[in-house]
Amino acid sequence: MEAPDLQINYKWGQSLNYSEIRDYLQRESLVTIKDFPLNDDELQSFINHLGTPLNEKRNNNGKTVFDVKITQHNNFFTSIANSNLAFPLHTDCADFNSIPNTIGLLCVEAAHEDEGTNNFMLLTDLLKHLSEIEKQKLLNKKWKFRNQERSILSSENDNHKICYDRITMQSFSKLTPIEIEELNNLDKLFRSLSFKIKLKKGDLILFRNDVMLHGRDKIDINSQRLIKRIRFDIKLPSFAMPPDFEQ
């Protein structure tokens, strides 16, 4: 699978076309901005033009920009995002009361060339590979995401969304062998439909969190990789844009 993205080269003092960027994100596409300033305030200001940022209350003292880097406390990683482990394809904040619909990742320090690659899967690609019975099962069955119960797929006016986080689902539920096999098969399908993007220093990638899954490959424990993450909500079109299942 290939990334359907808009690519922009950032220039200091440049007047960015925020409407164009927002339009691409609304149409469930990726946006990559090259040579973006490696500055929290600049990132914050940029995102403020696109939508409403989410404060990172869990691990970042309520700030909107979060440092994704290897971080340990008492010899334990503070989170899987702050580990060197491979991060399977997932939805950010799947256990939140309200899930932000867009994510921004700014690469400040890249991992070595053969590690830490970001992985993505488009919901539109997944829907083309599901039978109607399989879709209905994913729409109807509820799974536990910590204190939330949600289906993997949801639909409103034929607009589909996805919510998936295998680690959270398995950590807060006692799954049956059949359910584990079901998730194993989904993970295998997700990986088969995924594509890779290697972030370089100064790359800012923006993508939809409700119609894509994302993850990353394993990195070296001593890696200095640093990604600035910001989660936010963009206003989505009020009209339905049903996916074309016949493509």
Score class of each variant (00 low, 15 high):
Tyr24Lys: 02
Tyr24Gly: 01
Gln26Arg: 14
Gln26Cys: 09
Arg27Ala: 12
Arg27Tyr: 08
Glu28Lys: 09
Glu28Asn: 13
Glu28Ala: 07
Ser29Tyr: 05
Ser29Asn: 14
Leu30Gly: 03
Leu30Thr: 00
Leu30Tyr: 05
Leu30Asn: 01
Val31Gly: 01
Thr32Ile: 09
Ile33Ala: 00
Ile33Glu: 01
Lys34Met: 00
Lys34Leu: 02
Asp35Arg: 01
Phe36Asp: 01
Pro37Phe: 13
Pro37Ala: 14
Leu38Tyr: 03
Leu38Pro: 00
Leu38Phe: 02
Asn39Gly: 06
Asp40Val: 00
Asp40Cys: 07
Asp41Ile: 11
Asp41Pro: 02
Asp41Leu: 10
Asp41Glu: 15
Asp41Cys: 05
Glu42Lys: 12
Glu42Phe: 10
Leu43Ile: 13
Gln44His: 14
Ser45His: 15
Ser45Tyr: 13
Phe46Met: 12
Phe46Glu: 13
Ile47Thr: 10
Ile47Gly: 09
Ile47Ala: 13
His49Gln: 15
His49Gly: 03
His49Leu: 08
Leu50Phe: 07
Leu50Trp: 09
Gly51Asn: 09
Gly51Trp: 04
Thr52Val: 14
Thr52Ser: 12
Leu54Val: 10
Glu56Tyr: 09
Lys57Cys: 05
Arg58Asn: 06
Arg58Glu: 03
Arg58Met: 07
Asn59Glu: 12
Asn59His: 05
Asn60Phe: 06
Asn60Tyr: 11
Asn61Ile: 01
Gly62Cys: 06
Thr64Pro: 00
Thr64Leu: 02
Val65Leu: 10
Val65Ala: 12
Phe66Asp: 07
Phe66Leu: 06
Phe66Val: 04
Asp67His: 09
Asp67Glu: 10
Asp67Lys: 00
Val68Gly: 04
Lys69Tyr: 02
Lys69Phe: 04
Ile70Lys: 06
Ile70Phe: 11
His73Gly: 00
His73Asp: 14
Asn74Leu: 10
Asn75Ser: 13
Asn75Asp: 15
Asn75Ala: 14
Thr78Gly: 08
Ser79Ala: 01
Ser79Gln: 05
Ile80Trp: 05
Ala81Arg: 03
Asn82Phe: 03
Ser83Gln: 12
Ser83Thr: 04
Ser83Arg: 08
Ser83Cys: 06
Ser83Phe: 09
Ser83Met: 10
Asn84Arg: 06
Asn84Asp: 15
Leu85Pro: 04
Leu85Met: 13
Ala86Arg: 15
Phe87Val: 06
Phe87Pro: 03
Pro88Gly: 07
Leu89Glu: 09
Leu89Gly: 08
Leu89Tyr: 11
Leu89Asn: 12
His90Asn: 04
His90Phe: 07
His90Thr: 03
His90Ser: 05
Thr91Pro: 13
Thr91Met: 12
Thr91Ala: 12
Thr91His: 13
Asp92Ala: 08
Ala94Arg: 04
Asp95Ala: 09
Phe96Met: 12
Phe96Asp: 10
Phe96Leu: 07
Ser98Ala: 12
Ser98Gln: 14
Ser98Trp: 06
Ser98Leu: 13
Ser98Pro: 00
Pro100Tyr: 03
Asn101Lys: 04
Thr102Ser: 15
Ile103Tyr: 11
Ile103Trp: 11
Ile103Ser: 14
Ile103Gly: 11
Ile103Thr: 08
Gly104Lys: 04
Gly104Cys: 10
Leu106Trp: 02
Cys107Lys: 01
Val108Ile: 12
Val108Asp: 03
Ala111Cys: 08
Ala111Ser: 15
Ala111Thr: 01
His112Cys: 03
